[in-house]
Design a protein around this nucleic acid. Structure first.
Length: 339
DNA sequence: AACCCGGGGTG
DNA sequence: CACCCAGGGTT
């Protein structure tokens, strides 16, 4: 192996002087570190910061989270996306209480048993909270390491995690994995950025193969996904004096567990207006055409009977704020009541 | 190993 | 508009 521990030490020294001041870094409570890691999955630090503070205040312990109900947890996650993270977090809190007797597991293999905790997150918690010597390989590692070694390994391949774990070991000074992992995160965020990296300010510039040739932005190598066809989705916004109907989506297709409107109404209902808009649903690489027909129901009895028969919930603008909707529907509700 | 899951920021 | 972000689960 071609070790370069000296570069790793330079990175640690840089981190000692330049570490970001983040709320989850002022605790050694593995529960809080766990929460922060889940929130930060595919989520920028600045977006997750306030959510973390709110979440910890509302659920300060695994017990409090385990005892919460689903809607409460889901609501706390509003605006973060990837809502299955919230569901898994709830499940894992119950695991902590029931399977681990309230004691947070203290090593990689045990932490990995928690629902929603994969290789990256288990390594992050084990290294940061318990000092275990293991790299927490995430997107920052892919970028920093592929540049440092000018390595063309395609990071979209499933094997990338194992491959870059081995590369990480060449830089990691033994016994300091927690700081090393967080140092790579801060470097990847502030210096070794996806675009316009600041190689002149980088503690790893000396020894970095890509910086030496000015090719940092060519890494990491990643295959592009192909865009597929357009998809149509139809909704009925059924309203009676400011109240309207919603239901919870199932666990199939998109927007799992979130709320939405009915798909259709009886023929006797009179359409008040129609709006249609196109959004780019990046996760499925499809453009999504959402059409929402607006119905104003004149008769309360008719409104309630339809709701009961269809199994819909009746809510209003204030009530809807206590539910989680996909962003496009949430925006639609806001526009309906402001315009 | 491929595919699915989001909201928000950035150039 | 395209791409990215402290990834994990399912098939």
């Amino acid at each position: 192996m071609n070790f370069n521990l000296e570069a790793g030490c330079r990175l640690l020294q840089w981190y000692a002087e330049n570490a970001r001041d983040l709320p989850w870094r002022s605790t050694d409570d593995p529960y809080k570190i766990w929460i922060s890691e889940i929130i930060l999955q595919q989520t920028r630090v600045e977006q997750g910061r306030q959510h973390y503070l709110n979440f910890i205040e509302k659920f300060p312990t695994a017990e409090s989270l385990a005892n919460a109900d689903t809607d409460e947890v889901l609501l706390s996650w509003k605006g973060l996306g990837y809502y299955s993270r919230a569901m898994n977090l709830h499940t894992a809190a119950k695991q902590l209480v029931n399977d681990f007797g309230g004691n947070f597991p203290d090593n990689f293999n045990e932490i990995l048993k928690l629902k929603g905790v994969g290789r990256y997150t288990a390594a992050a918690i084990a290294s940061i909270a318990f000092g275990e010597d293991i790299p927490a390989v995430d997107g920052n590692f892919y970028r920093v390491l592929s540049r440092f070694f000018a390595d063309d390994f395609d990071v979209s391949r499933s094997a990338a995690h194992g491959y870059f774990s081995e590369l990480a070991k060449m830089l990691m000074p033994p016994g300091l994995a927690g700081d090393f992992n967080q140092a790579v995160m801060d470097l990847g965020s502030g210096i070794c950025r996806p675009r316009k990296p600041l190689c002149r300010e980088c503690p790893l510039e000396e020894g970095c193969a890509a910086a030496g040739t000015g090719t940092a932005e060519l890494y990491p190598k990643k295959t592009k996904k192909v865009r597929k066809t357009e998809l149509a989705l139809g909704y009925a916004f059924v309203e009676w004096r400011g109240s309207f109907l919603i239901r919870r989506r199932g666990t199939d297709f998109i927007w799992k567990n979130l709320y939405e409107f009915p798909a259709e109404v009886p023929e006797s209902f009179q359409k008040y207006s129609e709006s249609s808009f196109l959004i780019n649903h990046q996760l499925t690489h499809r453009s999504l055409r959402i059409t929402i027909n607006h119905y104003k129901i004149p008769d309360e009895h008719l409104f309630r009977r339809y709701a009961a028969q269809g199994g819909f919930l009746i809510t209003d603008l204030e009530g809807s704020a206590r539910k989680s909707f996909p962003q496009p529907l949430q925006r639609f509700i806001g526009e309906i009541f402001s315009g």
